[in-house]
Design a protein around this nucleic acid. Structure first.
Lengths: 234, 234
DNA sequence: CCGCTTAAAATGTCTATACAATAAGTCTAG
DNA sequence: CTAGACTTATTGTATAGACATTTTAAGCGG
């Protein structure tokens, strides 16, 4: 991370280090741009760029006339990466397969969709090395992705297919736990009442909802992990 | 978001809009800095600043000599905000209380800590409106936060107290589901075998682990939600 | 047609300067 | 002592120019 070239990057990294190792504490005022300009013997714009980046990343807060201050540590945040199944399997050397168990066009129920609008309903079972790993129930608004009508989802699972067909969407995620009722338990090869880790994701594009998916994972076979660092390690 | 002042901000926002609404598609080449300089009738540095910001946010990819391209949409990511209990309760108008049920100094077991090092072990029950909402088991490395020895955790829960005493740490989160075994079930007033949503968080500062906490939530009373937008809505 | 060199296009960074915007501090009148 | 006006320190943004860096593309010799 410190291998970046450039004076501005060096200043940025050095100040970041001072903040992260506690030398400069939250609330403390840091030197002004002019002082840093002198210390590093460079142009003010160069210092400014370094500080602007630190401010954008939330490590410092800047106020005109008052100066720059080390920010208070943020409320705990976690950046979850919801991996693509195929990708995840590849990483762990497992074989991934999926199977569409239901495919049906239905009118939208009340809720997030415009009632009555045509939707595609899919049920899909995901397996890692032939063992059921996730159960997916998905609704897709056909008007948002007309091509979905002819998609067969044989090579790609619906989620992966959509990622390629709906660029730059927004999503809302909800993670919860539940106990398996009979239908899901049978699909996932669990006993009724087993704990499930559930992920619901609704995806939007250009103001309209695109898809609403619920994924259920056997508790002992899946977990979400996230590393959060103040420095948003890239 | 578009209320920012300035030419660079305006250019940034306009290009962002073109990408998000699909006018400029992933992979597509966007105009060069020089072309944009002409289009917006401003200095190259101004355009550069706008594009650099878009690149940092991951909406475009820039390659010298080749040009700038709309990036492929990222793998699904979700930014989870793990709210402070007290804060969360205040937001929903509930009354939050916590109770320390165990406090004990123990030598570190094998694992993430240096074996044998003195730790503080805490068990804590969190309640919303007197109803058990979360069960916390926490280890704190005393050497990392010596002040913890004298902290009483009467007004503040351990997590909140630590946030104030350990600035700018890093953390790793793990979310899973489980079924309640007897001890936890009793604390949370659940029947055995009920589904739990579990969060484990390990926090580091300056190279050393600070605390390792496991939180268990009754499945039907808690969920994590996260909104992800390409635009990292602040 | 291949591999090497060379030119050039595009982005990356820095400098120096100017002026704008904000808000903390200071002074003054009452 | 306080309200309001003024000063000024500090950050925010823009400009124009210079040079560095990277990598595609072109040209050329074999």
């Amino acid at each position: 991370m410190t291998r970046d070239q450039g004076i501005a990057a060096a200043i940025h990294d050095e100040i970041e280090r001072l903040i992260l190792n506690g030398t400069w504490k939250p609330g403390q005022r840091i030197p002004t741009e002019l002082e840093l300009t002198a210390r590093y013997d460079c142009a003010r714009m160069t210092v400014h760029k370094a500080l602007a980046r630190l401010a954008e990343r939330g490590l410092i807060v800047r106020r005109r006339r008052a100066g720059s201050f080390v920010a208070a540590p943020p409320a705990e945040q976690a950046v979850l990466t919801i991996g693509d199944f195929a990708e995840e399997a590849a990483r762990t050397g497992q074989r991934y397969t999926h199977e569409i168990l239901l495919r049906s066009e239905i009118p939208a129920p009340a809720g997030d969709f415009t009632t009555g609008e045509p939707l595609l309903l899919l049920h899909c079972l995901h397996r890692f090395d032939a063992v059921p790993a996730a159960w997916e129930e998905r609704l897709i608004r056909i008007a948002a992705v007309p091509a979905v009508r002819t998609a067969r989802f044989e090579r790609e699972a619906p989620g992966t297919w959509l990622l390629r067909h709906v660029p730059w969407s927004q999503a809302e995620h909800e993670i919860s736990a539940a106990t398996a009722e009979a239908g899901v338990a049978r699909r996932l090869n669990l006993r009724r009442g087993a704990a499930l880790l559930c992920l619901r994701r609704r995806t939007w594009h250009g103001g309209g909802i695109v898809t609403d998916v619920r994924l259920s994972f056997p508790a002992e076979r899946h977990r979400f992990t996230a590393r959060f660092s103040a420095t948003t390690e890239k």
